[in-house]
Each structure stands twice: as C-alpha cells, then as structure tokens.
C-alpha cells in the first residue's frame, strides 16, 4: 500500500492583496523523495515555498503536511527545516551557536550532549572543523551547508531549500547537490527544492512541478528528465532546453 503523501496541496490560491500569483494549484510530495519546484523568475516559486513553510497564509485552498496539518497554524517544535537562499545564519553567532540555538529552544539538552549533536551535524555537512567560525569568515557554499546543518539539528524529516545553488560556483553547487542526495537517500528525508538551476534539477530531483507566471500555476509535473525529453508544452520545452520562448505568443504557457 503506498504511504500517505508527505505534503498535499489542494486547489491552492496564493497572492498578495488583490494580486493573484497562483491559483488552482494541486500537487503532492511523496515521502522520502526529492521534489523540485521549478519555473522562471517571478512565477511565484519562492512565494509558494513561503506558504508551504507557513510564513504566509493562502487566499484559498489547502496545504497539508503529514503530521503537521496546515503549516501556518502549526505551533511547537518545527517539524521541518528550511535552508533560506542566503543561508540566513545569525552573523553574530558562530556556526556551532547557530545550531545550538534551536536545540536550546526546543530540547532540554545542554552541555556535552548538545555539543556532541551540534558537532555531529556540522561533521555531516563537512564543516566539523569550522564550528567556532563566524558566518562572515566562511565562503558562500559553506554558509549554505551550515544552513543545512541548522535545518537538520531538530531531526526534521522534511527539508525545504530555497535556491540552494544560487550564487555558488559549479563545484560548490555540485557538492551541495550531493549533500541533498545523501540527506534523502541515507537519512530518508523528504526534500523540497525551489530552483531554476537545470544541472541541479536533473541530478537530484525525483519529481517536479513547473510553474509559469502567465498560466498562474502549474503547467507540467512529473520526472524532470521525462519532461525534458517528452513534454510538448512550449514553455516546459523551452525551460528545460534553455531555448527562447515567446510569452506573448503563448500567454497560457
């Protein structure tokens, strides 16, 4: 019997005031998979992510995270971790202190045990030797990995990544992609990635949705490799093959 989806989004409408960014959006994210939210700039990828993690409330429709319910209504130990685009590390705290902060807030662990857990998470992302560094003293790729370690510290089984490869050199981007694959395969974590980096999409994503600004919603969903090879939707084809696409000729995507 297939397990219950980790995330269910049903007939979602999101926007700000009278401006609708996305409507009639329905999709599911299966447990333990890597799911990509794709689309060009301004199509609402990051807005959708903000709704999925409960920072914004939708105008209509339903978001249900298994074991959490509606994320914007949830209170308590965060059941998912988030890696923000910039890493969003607290600049006045060392990497270890950044990880210790949620642990201190939500668990009774102190002292050597807390230190051991924090160090293990930093080791996991390859930053064990940088625990006492400030975010300003490490590179962009290291900041992202430290952000991943912080997102993992409360043992969430669901992680959200906002543009993880943005601003990284190709090697750092691939290293981060490998880390995402490790998290999914070895730790069984469900990963939702917002991105428009094609190499990253084809390397890590099991499944994806493609959003289009003009269509105000999903224009395709499925395995990104299959969509690249088989999709006949002009926008999707153009997106995956990096070819030019005339929006005015195809306003509906």
């Amino acid at each position: 019997m297939p397990s219950r989806p980790h995330i269910t989004v049903d007939d979602l409408r999101i926007g700000y005031g009278t401006r609708v960014l996305m409507e009639h959006t329905t999709f599911q994210v299966e447990r333990g998979t890597i799911f990509a939210i794709l689309g060009g700039s301004g199509c609402g990828k990051s807005s959708l992510l903000r709704h999925l993690i409960g920072l914004e409330r939708q105008q209509a429709g339903r978001i249900d995270i298994d074991g959490v319910g509606e994320p914007s209504q949830y209170e308590g130990v965060p059941p998912f971790g988030v890696l923000f685009q910039s890493g969003a590390l607290f600049s006045s705290l060392t990497l270890a202190e950044n990880l210790w902060l949620p642990l201190n807030r939500w668990t009774p662990m102190r002292g050597a045990t807390a230190h051991e857990l924090v160090q293990a998470k930093l080791d996991l992302v390859g930053l064990g030797a940088f625990a006492e560094y400030l975010p300003g003293e490490i590179s962009g790729g290291m900041k992202k990995r430290a952000g991943v370690a912080r997102a993992l510290v409360l043992e969430a089984d669901l992680l959200f990544f906002d543009e993880p490869s943005a601003g990284l050199d190709p090697i750092s981007a691939v290293e981060l992609d490998q880390l995402i694959i490790t998290l999914s395969r070895d730790l069984g974590i469900t990963v939702v990635i917002v991105t428009h980096e094609l190499p990253s999409i084809f390397l890590v994503a099991d499944n994806c949705i493609v959003l289009d600004k003009a269509a105000k919603g999903i224009v395709a969903q499925g395995d990104p490799r299959k969509l690249r090879d088989e999709s006949e939707i002009p926008f999707v084809h153009a997106f995956f093959t990096r070819s030019s696409y005339d929006v005015t000729a195809n306003p509906g995507g």
């Binding site: 160090q119 930093l122 070895d186």
Partner: peptide
C-alpha cells in the same frame, strides 16, 4: 546506516 554515516563523517578536531 545512520550510525555508519555519522561515524564515517566524523571530523577529528
């Protein structure tokens, strides 16, 4: 698998 992962990724400081 989990124990092996955390053992192999340990940094000796």
């Amino acid at each position: 698998r989990l124990i092996a992962l955390y053992r192999e990724r340990r940094t000796i400081l």
